[in-house]
Design a protein around this nucleic acid. Structure first.
Length: 156
DNA sequence: GCCAACGTTGGC
DNA sequence: GCCAACGTTGGC
């Protein structure tokens, strides 16, 4: 089982939106490295839900992969901001898994707090200039973060 | 294939 | 609004 972190601007789609929707297809990612990670996700993989461009920026909750990546339908939609003219139904370019809501943390675990924790050294999110919106997280880092967040979810 | 110009992300 | 750190585009 793998662990990941996905970023979202809460004004666009927050952990509260996911809580209400229960499941969401993670469409709109338009970066190849992030896409390759999305394709690797397997049902059951756990996901940290990060709020970017927020006050404060930080991890707001937990999600889980519900369904393996499938073609991102927004790439075929001419009216969508995510429309991709190079994509065809036979050869889609962008893919997205379905994510389900698991938990909203009592408090956002802020980026500042994450940076202060020595045990999170090496976490890609904390690298200067890290911009990827889909990031792998090691099992120890994942466990540590759940603990810091006071999560009710049992990582075992 | 190189690289300059440009666009985007996201913290601050 | 600024800007660092990228990724992408397109001329050559």
């Amino acid at each position: 089982m793998n662990h990941w972190l996905v970023k979202s601007e809460p004004e666009t789609y927050s952990i509260d939106h996911l809580k209400k929707d229960k499941v969401a297809d993670w469409h709109g990612v338009r970066n190849y490295q992030a896409r390759n990670y999305l394709i690797k996700m397997e049902p059951g993989d756990m996901i940290l839900f990060y709020h970017s461009n927020a006050t404060p920026p930080g991890i707001a909750g937990l999600s889980r992969v519900k369904k393996k990546a499938h073609p991102d339908l927004s790439q075929f939609d001419k009216k969508s901001e995510f429309f991709e003219k190079r994509a065809t139904q036979e050869k889609p370019i962008w893919f997205c898994p379905d994510l389900e809501f698991v938990e909203k943390f009592d408090e956002v675990l802020s980026l500042d707090t994450l940076r202060e924790e020595k045990k999170l050294e090496g976490l890609e999110l904390l690298r200067k200039g890290s911009r990827l919106s889909v990031i792998p997280v090691s099992a120890p880092h994942f466990k540590k973060i759940l603990k810091m967040a006071g999560s009710k979810f049992d990582a075992e």
